[in-house]
Amino acid sequence: MPEARWTWAWGVAVAGLLLAGTAASTSPAADAPAGRTIVIENLQFNPQVLAVKAGERITWVNKDLFPHTATAGAKAFDSKAIAPNAVWTWVAQKPGTYTYVCAFHPTMKGTITVQ
C-alpha cells in the first residue's frame, strides 16, 4: 500500500518537524527536551502515563487505521478527531494531573502529569 506508507511517512515527518521546531525554539542546548510523543496504536496510548514539565509540548501520533481523540475532562484539552497517520499537539502549561480518554473508544485511557 504505497499510498498508506506515504501518508504514514508524512505523519512521522510532520511529527519530526514539530519536535524539531520545539527544540529550536525552546533552547539551543543540545540536551533540551524536544517535546514528548505519545503513540496511539492498537487502541492504546503509549506511554499511558506521562510526566512532563510545564511548557513542554506533547504530540499524539495516531498509528491506528481509524480516528482517535485525546480528550481530558474539565475542559483541559480535547484534540477532537485525530485521523489515521495524523498528529495533534498540546502544550502543557498548568501543573496538575490530567486523565484523558479517547472519546470514540472509552476503553482507551491515559494520564499526563504536568510538574
Binding site: M1, A4, D64, L65, F66, P67, P84, F104
Partner: peptide, 9 residues
C-alpha cells in the same frame, strides 16, 4: 468509521 478504516487498509 472504524470498520471502513480497516477495510481501506
Amino acid at each position: 468509521t472504524d470498520h471502513s478504516g480497516v477495510n481501506k487498509s
